[in-house]
Design a protein around this nucleic acid. Structure first.
Ligand code: FES
Ligand code: FES
Lengths: 146, 146
DNA sequence: CGAATAAAAGACATTAATATCTTTTTAAAA
DNA sequence: TTTTAAAAAGATATTAATGTCTTTTATTCG
């Protein structure tokens, strides 16, 4: 529900690099995939898109890997969702009607719109950096839980 | 987002029969699919499951079709979700972690749990019959919008 | 330069969701 | 009883999401 697996992988990948990649240390896809118990090549594909968006840096070759940049910690979660799932999902009728709007709303529209706006608001405000505080960082270890 | 297409088809189908099938009039799959602009055979498969769950009645043969029963209007939306999507989706970590609980929550857990409980609450309380009041019924015409 | 390393890119595979088509079963009515 | 209509059932097809494998490109270092 809510979002695709790809989104989970993307956010977890970015978080891993953000947390483990302090001081610009470069992290390799191998390590990320292993630590997060995520399919390596699939993650690589997603990380490539993340880099293309400028949310992380990457360098090829020996001693290369993924590293954070100025944008990383300021990236809002919604931008990661865009990347992996698109944003139509915030605007489509929950019943699949073609036009979701106030004009001819389905009977769930109002309450769904409310819930949806909370989610959108949360994802529009929360930044990657907000999820990497000391108090939060514990969870990263549990990412690998199989 | 939120739910599958199947869920939308299921609810819309049940609503159509509930609204158009007053006095026990039987509605045929052909009519439902056409009026809702939904793939006929796919809808048939879903309606079969709805009937199996006892949420609608059906009769084969001439003058047959789908009709409402005592359960129909009292059916909670959550039961339709169960039918089409299952309910794990209300309990899985939004980041894909294996265990979503308070023990070792991901940094989004609390807010997501809140939003999720609203949705669960809404779907656990709302009944099919709540969506078929006069004021709401207008939308049924827009179901067909392509 | 040449070897080694790591991401980028792209081809291919699998699975789950969605969709279509055909056959079987049930029931009504002539 | 035969015909016909309609859902049930099941087989097959398509598409999108997820996952794997191979080749290419860029970078470092000896
Ligand atoms: S019209 Fe259905 S959610 Fe807006
Ligand atoms: S642990 Fe992530 S949503 Fe509960």
């Amino acid at each position: 529900m809510f979002f695709s697996k790809s989104f989970g992988y993307a956010l977890r990948g970015v978080l891993y690099v953000s947390i483990e990649g302090k001081e610009g240390r470069k992290i390799q896809i191998e390590e990320i995939a292993e630590q997060l118990s995520v399919p390596r090549h699939f993650l690589a594909k997603i990380m490539k898109a993340v880099v293309k968006k400028g949310i992380l840096n990457s360098t090829k070759g020996p001693y290369g890997g993924f590293s954070i940049n100025k944008k990383t910690l300021n990236t809002k979660l919604i931008h990661l969702v865009e990347l992996t799932d698109g944003t139509e999902l915030f605007n489509n009728c929950i019943l699949g009607l073609k036009n979701c709007n106030g004009k001819n709303p389905c009977p769930l529209h109002d309450e769904i719109a409310l819930i949806r706006s909370q989610l959108l608001n949360k994802f529009g405000k929360t930044r990657v950096g907000d999820l990497t505080d000391e108090e939060n960082v514990n969870f990263i270890k549990s990412l690998a839980v199989v």
